[in-house]
Write a protein that binds this DNA or RNA. Structure first.
Lengths: 335, 335
DNA sequence: TTGTAGGCGTTATCAG
DNA sequence: CTGATAACGCCTACAA
């Protein structure tokens, strides 16, 4: 049998469909008894409003879209978790699409979500922010919030981290520990956070008056294998770094594994610092010193900003900051 | 300005809305020229069909719901990735909701998704399969596919793994390596896969004629901290195990960290085997020997099963199997 | 081949 | 406070 509709209820309760509609949405223009009566009836018959029909008339689906590079990345997963929790609390569903770290797919994903009529779009770590320029001023009517990126434009918002400060702090910390040659393994070229962390690293190096030669900088894609490869490269240097800051924990974990394989003791022979503080970092061998990012909070913030825009009271921008969490992968250099 | 609708196109093209509708969906009952003309017009004006309106009449949203315990779990993330990819290829969107490993929230999540009118529901590692019994025979009309679990009922399908075989094989392998006391760290009590793996472990122990005392079995929730705690407990035993099989890689990674902290060499002093083969396991110290699960394939299979049901040609059930991947965390016992 | 009309389930406007 | 009535955007018999 088909689902029970508002019309069925109306017929049974001997009232008009509009009365039922009002009763169901606690509209004040209805008598308390009727309302109670109808709500009870609806409950009894297991009435479930058709979101689709509702959306058609209200123009809102109560669904938010999230495009993420890859849920398989622990950082992304944590952010998504925050997004989902906050969205649910606000009565929104979350439609998700992955870009597989690929700009073209990212746009495709966004379009798909838009086609599903999401009320707002959240893009985690976009690789192609410029592509969204047409939002607002031209085509799209939904608010867009860029997480870990930004792009000027009406109806485009962002929540970001102070990546430069984080990387700078990490370098300063290593310097204080006594390190003089500090390497950096950068992340994906297209990513803004990678750029910013690299920049923060450079600032730190300069501020501490350390060796800023480019041979201490390697590039990767933010995956464990990149950390692995980077260590190999570093070890081929005439004078390898005594400490390495990584774009993210995944890279750092890979580097840690490579160090173990190479027989290096961490932190004795090499100090390693990550970025993100993903859950597994606390259980690395040795536990990873890293720059915490309030991942779930970022996700929640994205929802807040999005809903604020939807509610007509846009929040210009939100910037959160992380902080170094000290564990055991970084220490004084052996000599 | 409001989005362009089928009616706008009709007005501009000087034809009726139905003609436009037909042209857009390649209906044969229309002249080729008209079709081309209208399609070009639609393209030019950037027409995007309203999924909502379409859904209202067709009764399908082209959206599938996924309830997952926690995207933050690497296993779940990998499965979700497969689900998303397959869904997208089939033209479906994916709405996600998390249960936070909590049966009550799981049901709530499922209801939310259903309220959003998903065409099908996929539940990853359900903790409350019985609760879905009412599906099909009573209330819900959407197909439900249980991943890593099962529940009899019309319109309920499942894709599963042969967990018993996997655990058995792992035990057999450890036995062949020379281990005689093999421990097991079980997963969440409510989970079916945990039950099955425990059962497989017991079968293996029995088949190899090994010590089957309960002190070799610990319980956890499938998180790193559980592995950590389990090792502590094992070490307090008069005769600790020389090898430990874990419910999943997360647990194994935690156990590995605890072993390192305790000064145990792996695999010399202790062999460790995980389950799932999450990406980071290859970069553990030492690299983790584990039972692979075809995670993305499981996700894809879930979509296949779901779409098949939707298409009226239900696939009864799909069972995949994993296989041991040998790395360095398991080896011969020192003595 | 094309057009007309009805309906999908709700909400909203406007009278009573 | 309540009831018609008209959208919302699209699909689909049924007519022409």
């Amino acid at each position: 049998m088909p689902p029970v509709s508002i019309i069925d209820l109306a017929r049974i309760a001997q009232v008009s469909p509009s009365t039922v509609s009002r009763a169901l949405q606690d509209n004040p223009r209805i008598s308390p008894e009727r309302r109670a009566e109808i709500q009870a009836l609806a409950e009894r018959l297991g009435y479930r409003p058709s979101q689709v029909a509702r959306s058609l008339v209200t123009g809102r689906t109560h669904t938010l879209g999230v495009v993420a590079s890859d849920v398989t990345d622990p950082f992304v997963a944590e952010v998504l978790k925050g997004v989902e929790a906050a969205a649910r609390e606000a009565g929104y569903g979350v439609l998700i699409a992955m870009s597989n770290r690929n700009p073209a797919e990212e746009i495709e994903a966004a379009e798909i979500l838009l086609d599903h009529q999401v009320d707002g779009l959240i893009v985690i770590s976009s690789r192609a922010p410029e592509r969204y320029a047409r939002f607002g001023d031209e085509g799209e009517r939904v608010p867009l919030v860029l997480l870990n990126n930004e792009q000027p434009g009406p109806n485009i918002y962002s929540v970001r981290m102070d990546n430069e400060a984080g990387a700078r702090e990490a370098v300063t910390y290593l310097h204080a520990l006594g390190h003089r040659r500090i390497g950096f393994v950068a992340g994906p070229e297209g990513g803004r956070s990678s750029r910013e962390r690299l920049s923060g690293y450079r600032q730190g190096i300069r501020a501490c008056g350390l060796d800023a030669s480019d041979e201490l900088i390697r590039h990767g894609a933010g995956l464990p294998e990149d950390g692995h490869a980077a260590l190999d490269a570093f070890l081929r240097l005439a004078q390898p770094p005594t400490a390495v800051l990584c774009y993210n924990d995944l890279t750092a974990l890979g580097l840690l594994a490579a160090a173990a394989r190479a027989g290096l003791r961490v932190p004795g022979d090499l100090s390693v610092v990550g970025y993100d503080n993903i859950p597994l970092s606390a259980f690395a061998v040795p536990p990873l010193t890293t720059v915490e990012q309030p991942k779930a909070a970022m996700g929640r913030a994205a929802i807040e900003v999005c809903l604020a825009a939807l509610g007509g009271e846009p929040i210009s921008e939100r910037i959160l900051s992380g902080q170094l969490v000290l564990r055991e992968s970084a220490g004084q250099p052996a000599r």
